[in-house]
């Protein structure tokens, strides 16, 4: 693993809310093409870590490196433009828009035509819209959702909504994808399908993925490396098999 390039790395990352140290001294290193799991008991700070990495919160200490370059993002959309995309624990789609428009909205960053060109429908409008239409449908086809393109997003079944959210995140052309409990609320069939989809996009896009998950069997099954946090601090890092034996991890989950 050590020869692979680092994609996302943090150095002593931390944030305090008033007197509460929600996350402190966080050092993680996700390499190219790696699928890393971030686990920990409830309230350990997993989602806070995601919010730090996506620019929702500004860290009070430490640094974030993307491709070994330090990045400062004031806003979540800056972070997306740098190549960090995410999904949410409670699915956030553009509910009343069509499935296709959900993906197209995420392609906005790669479109160039100006408002005037759009309003007057000049050639660049037609060219870019046709291109985005094609790309969006390809992306949906990857998840087997091309037939649902014209449906309203809110009307999709839960599992499909999850997939759409991932497809939408991919439309921003990320280097790393952060998935916040992607299997939450899914039945075993849906989970299996989702895992297939994740494997598929990893192979196709050579994407690094950081995954928060509660379903331990799932995490152990697909993650290559795990980071365990508790009370905002890393308590263990390593291969799934090592983590399963780790006394501190067992202690954190079961109570000492």
């Amino acid at each position: 693993m050590s020869e692979a390039k680092s994609v996302l790395r943090t150095e002593n990352l931390g944030i305090t809310f008033g007197g509460l140290k929600a996350v402190q001294n966080l050092n993680i290193d996700i390499r190219e093409g790696e699928l890393m799991g971030l686990i920990g008991p409830n309230g350990a700070g997993k989602t806070t870590v995601f919010n730090l990495l996506t620019g929702v919160y500004q860290p009070t200490s430490g640094k974030i490196f993307l491709n070994d370059k330090e990045i400062h993002a004031k806003k979540p959309h800056d972070m997306v433009r740098q190549g960090v995309a995410r999904t949410f624990q409670n699915i956030r789609l553009f509910k009343e828009l069509t499935v296709l428009d959900n993906v197209k909205a995420a392609f906005n960053g790669s479109m160039k035509y100006t408002t005037l060109e759009g309003v007057l429908r000049l050639p660049r409008y037609w060219k870019e819209e046709a291109e985005i239409d094609r790309k969006s449908r390809e992306l949906l086809a990857l998840f087997g959702m091309e037939g649902l393109a014209d449906n309203i997003a809110a009307n999709l079944p839960y599992g499909q909504q999850r997939k759409l959210e991932i497809a939408r995140a991919l439309a921003t052309n990320p280097k790393i994808l952060l998935l916040d409990e992607p299997a939450a609320g899914m039945n075993p069939t849906e989970t299996a399908e989702l895992m297939e989809a994740i494997a598929l996009i990893r192979n196709k896009y050579k994407l690094s993925i950081l995954l928060i998950e509660h379903d331990m069997s799932l995490v152990m099954g697909i993650c290559e490396r795990l980071v365990v946090i508790d009370y905002g601090q890393v308590i263990a890092t390593g291969l799934p098999a090592e983590i399963a034996q780790n006394k501190r991890v067992i202690g954190a989950y079961l109570g000492e």
Binding site: P76, H77, V80, A85, F88, N108, G118, E129, R168
Partner: peptide
């Protein structure tokens, strides 16, 4: 236009719109 699409996306979910790179 893409601008109109983005504006309706913000209406639907402003946190999600930031998360797909929309200012």
């Amino acid at each position: 236009s893409r601008q109109g699409r983005v504006i309706t996306a913000i209406r639907e979910d402003d946190i999600a719109s930031e998360a797909v790179g929309i200012n």
